[in-house]
Design a protein around this nucleic acid. Sequence first.
DNA 1: TTGTATGCGTTATCAA
DNA 2: TTGATAACGCATACAA
Lengths: 326, 326
Amino acid sequence: MPTINDVARKCGVSTRTVSRVLNDRPNVRPEVRQRVLAAADQLGYRPDPNARALKSGRKQVVGIVANSVSSDTTLHRIEVISKLFATSGYAVLMQFAESPEMEEAAIHSIAPRCDGLVIFSNLHSAHAPALLWLDSRHIPFVVVDPPVDITFPAVHIDRRSGYREGVRYLVQKGRRELLLVVESFRASERIAGFMEGLEREGLRFRSSRIIHSAKGFKGGADAAPQVLELIKQEHIDGILCHNDKIALGLLGALQKQGIAIPEQLSLIGFDDDGYDAYINPALTTIAQTGGDVGAFIYEQLKNAIEYGTAIESKTFGTGLVLRASA
Amino acid sequence: MPTINDVARKCGVSTRTVSRVLNDRPNVRPEVRQRVLAAADQLGYRPDPNARALKSGRKQVVGIVANSVSSDTTLHRIEVISKLFATSGYAVLMQFAESPEMEEAAIHSIAPRCDGLVIFSNLHSAHAPALLWLDSRHIPFVVVDPPVDITFPAVHIDRRSGYREGVRYLVQKGRRELLLVVESFRASERIAGFMEGLEREGLRFRSSRIIHSAKGFKGGADAAPQVLELIKQEHIDGILCHNDKIALGLLGALQKQGIAIPEQLSLIGFDDDGYDAYINPALTTIAQTGGDVGAFIYEQLKNAIEYGTAIESKTFGTGLVLRASA
DNA sequence: TTGTATGCGTTATCAA
DNA sequence: TTGATAACGCATACAA
């Protein structure tokens, strides 16, 4: 591996001059610049990023810490962030964490190698020590969709309003006996929206109208018997689901039992997964609105890193995407 | 940010001793070891990974280069690899590339920061300079699912046998007029398998029996009119698709036109996406077999990095996952 | 416009 | 068992 010294020697200049050329600094004669560039190219010289980082502190890397139970949405956002940062010459250092403790450890392990951090967080405390630590080290970071309110720069997704809107829409369609099917993790915002929606429509909330399901397609399918029972006993005619996977799992299982959707029952998911428009009936869903979360994070974090600007928090809304199932 | 010197000073030993303690080296009195550990902890000391990498060459990072058009499968494999490496204390440095040229650039930019590399490749040449360069630098790497044969350690997915098997299965079910719907990218292996399958079953191949569609659900749906035409004219009764998204898009569109699946027409996808079992009819598909690709890569690469073992190439098979659509 | 020399925070050689 | 000290490859203050 050739070093900057090799390049300097090869064309009879000092390392200082080579450094100038390589970092696009002024005060180098064009002729010398050419010579250095040629020598570097010829030797296949590449600056050592570690040495550079050690000296200058700039690493050209952004870190991403994500919780282990990352959804397709999270994966997609990570992809967007990575691609955008790639266009600015940054690579992305990623570490998954299974638990809040591991998440803190991951932050500590990744931060020293990064110019900035994106944290898809499960940290359940608003005062996570790792975040305080980052802050004290002046490492810019964005927390994405934390389950609790947080005083640090963060992107929030307002699911509550989406579920509220879902309820309103169903009621407007003449549905009165509504049900909410949620996974155990991150149910509270959905439940709050559901309850608020009922209240605003003047409908009474009953705790029996919240069903807890396991995760994913299978969770939805497995919840079907219980849902079916409620349909019979309480004449459920509208269902809001934790996400589209739950909705699809449930949809198929209910259809097999002869439930007509949307005629007899309206069904609404969450996330706007790619398949929504192509299943039968196409799935009405609630989706994040207000632009691309990944793009927003990129803008904020990049400016914070390169110009020291403050990162502004933002709340993205959610809204109905109307299709056939409701 | 406290350094190793601060720790050394704080407990009155030399940096050498602190270094010994921190790297679990022998020849330190237990009492001193305790003292050092306590001091480090108290100062919140964390070794600088850049300085460490600069000196020792070990970076505790594996790199992933992925092409921009990465499928869900790729994303999932990346996730698996990241999580496994996280359990061994490695973070993952990721860079997406839009083109083969950018892919080479990404390799060059990432490699110096990594102990090893995973390359989800679109490199269309078997002798990509970047790979030769990696090899000459003795940086272990695995190429995943390259579109061409390659002499470097690689994981191959044998799609051809899967499509062959698909044809055989359809014929066995009494289907004779088969159609293949492929995207433009990476169609050749599928076409080869399709043609081989037909040949083995003694069926004649006609070029009209290959339809090119755009990407994704929409591509499948948009191909429907053309497919419908063929169904009418040539009495198509079995379709193999590029992947499950194409299959689902096509499925819905055909159903809307009154085609009964699987009664009138058998439909087979590829990938075994999560929703396959939950749509109606559940989608029969072709899936990669032989274990988890990500886990295999982790094993190989980790051993190569830590013990210098050679990485062995492996070909993963593909096989039918029978459900209702065929 | 260019060069010399120092130090970033580690690891590791050598001597004690 | 320990310590002084020299690199690792680069960026930059300062001198020329």
